[in-house]
Computed example of a mutant assay.
Amino acid sequence: MSEQTTATPARLTEAVDRLADRFRAMPQSRLLAAVPGHPSRAAAALDLARRLADAARALEGLPALPVPDCGAFAVGDQLAVTGHDLALAAGDGHPAELAAALADLADTDRLTA
């Protein structure tokens, strides 16, 4: 079974909630530590939140809006909100977009572990 056929809004919501909770529980020293390609884990998560938000807005036929940098301690909440928005916008009719988001989440999870 391919990733695309198993990609559902529920899977995206579960995955984003797990990653968001990890960031919410992460100590400041880990949040602010650099990871490859990013000045910090928080910056990597913010980049992911911005991509999720852009994907949701695109599915809704709306222009992208900036996701502001609200600080390292807010990034878990930003991931949750943007991930849930994308799951809602994608519904069951956009499995490719859901699969891409799940892959992006998995990549960020590995990068920031």
Rank of each mutant, 00 (worst) to 15 (best):
R22S: 11
P39W: 04
A34M: 06
G83N: 04
D47N: 15
E60D: 12
G76T: 08
L31V: 02
A15K: 08
R110C: 03
H38C: 00
A90E: 06
D77G: 15
D107N: 03
E3T: 11
F73D: 12
A34T: 10
G83M: 07
E3G: 11
A106M: 04
H84T: 13
L98V: 10
H84L: 10
E60H: 00
A103F: 02
G91F: 09
S40Y: 09
V81P: 00
Q4R: 15
S2P: 13
T108N: 00
Q78A: 13
A87M: 09
L86A: 07
P27T: 08
L62V: 09
T5V: 15
R11Y: 01
T82F: 00
A72G: 02
V75W: 06
D47E: 15
D54T: 15
A44T: 08
A96E: 14
L19D: 01
R51I: 04
T82E: 07
A80Y: 11
G91N: 04
V35K: 03
A49S: 13
A90C: 09
V16W: 02
A49E: 01
P66M: 09
V81R: 10
E97Y: 00
D21K: 15
D21Q: 15
D47Y: 10
L79V: 12
L111S: 03
R11W: 02
C70Y: 11
R18Y: 03
P27I: 07
R41Y: 06
H94S: 15
V35N: 02
A10V: 13
D85G: 11
L62K: 13
P63I: 09
L102T: 06
M26W: 10
A53C: 11
A80K: 14
